[in-house]
């Protein structure tokens, strides 16, 4: 059995949807950030697959994957630090309780 680009796209679509579900539904800030990581993994799977199947001779897709990793690593670092800071001030990391934007 041989699989092509479509299989990778389908897999990444499923992962992306699961990540979106987690990001939208989870109450814990940490879990939301983990879901965001899932989304970025889905994106990277997509990029590596495209790089291999569509532009195999240039490595551009790899480079972008690398940068995407950098960005998501930075995002995780800052995001978790923010969660920590919020937790220290408010003694909670539950998103529904952090409703200071309420108008």
């Amino acid at each position: 059995m041989r699989v092509g680009l479509e299989a990778f796209l389908l897999l990444s679509a499923v992962l992306f949807s699961i990540g979106v579900y987690g990001a939208v539904s989870k109450r814990s800030a940490v879990q939301v950030i983990m879901s965001l990581e899932l989304i970025s993994i889905a994106v990277m799977v997509n990029m590596v697959a495209f790089a291999r199947f569509v532009t195999p001779d240039r490595g551009t897709g790899w480079a972008f994957t690398l940068f995407a990793m950098v960005v998501s690593a930075a995002e995780v670092g800052v995001g978790l630090a923010l969660v920590l800071a919020i937790y220290r001030r408010r003694h909670t990391a539950e998103l529904p309780e952090l409703d200071e934007l309420k108008g």
Partner: peptide, 17 residues
């Protein structure tokens, strides 16, 4: 409309999505 502005970040996120 006031219900939309409840400050819960994920409500906003859902709207955006």
């Amino acid at each position: 409309m006031r219900g939309l502005q409840n400050g819960v970040i994920q409500r906003y996120q859902r709207l955006v999505l």
